[in-house]
């Protein structure tokens, strides 16, 4: 039980800092609610872990970023300017998608190009496959008359083939 209490105290400290503790310098941002901060954080990505959105990240660095958002919101900045601030601060990583310029444009273009190219390929192949087909099946008079015996056997097999 002692151990539990000790642990409880330990984690209390941890969590108070993590979740509740507004750092000292953020006094003026205390009017900004967590929801308002997360509204912005939802459009940013943790620069340290890949694929984790800022509002869902529990790293200390990310909590600091959220505090910064709160300060900026209190100062009257809008979402776009906050985003560009973080881009200059941490690089394009925080956007969660490659910027649409330079080499990174390739990230956007290539899938579309491959898809269109593939579609064109399928289309031309499909057309050439269709051209192979004869206009009409051979008229029944040219066809050798199927013997009744075989036709009967076929019907039998069909009946069994379910």
């Amino acid at each position: 039980m002692n151990r539990v209490i000790h642990l409880l105290r330990l984690t209390l400290l941890l969590f108070v800092f993590l979740a509740l503790g507004q750092p000292l310098y953020a006094q003026d941002a205390s009017t900004v609610t967590a929801d308002q901060v997360n509204e912005v954080a939802r459009e940013l990505w943790c620069p340290l872990c890949s694929g984790v959105r800022l509002d869902g990240c529990e790293l200390k660095a990310c909590d600091q970023m959220k505090d910064e958002i709160a300060i900026k919101l209190a100062a009257g900045d809008d979402t776009e300017s906050i985003k560009s601030y973080f881009v200059t601060q941490y690089g394009p990583q925080v956007l969660g998608e490659p910027p649409r310029s330079g080499f990174n444009l390739l990230a956007w273009i290539l899938p579309v190009a491959v898809l269109l190219g593939g579609g064109l390929f399928v289309l031309t192949r499909g057309r050439s496959m269709m051209q192979d087909i004869r206009p009409a099946p051979v008229a029944s008079s040219e066809r050798p008359v199927p013997d009744d015996d075989y036709a009967r056997r076929l019907d039998e097999e069909l009946a069994r083939h379910d």
Binding site: R53, G91, L95, E97, L106, P111
Partner: peptide
């Protein structure tokens, strides 16, 4: 087509880092 896009997006950060030297993230928005 989807498989290619997913593959491309998964590996793109690696390519980008090799070519431009800058680390970008390709996450849910992309």
């Amino acid at each position: 087509g989807i498989a290619f896009a997913v593959l491309w997006g998964t590996f793109f950060p690696m390519f980008s880092e090799i070519i431009t030297g800058q680390r970008i993230s390709v996450a849910a928005p992309w």
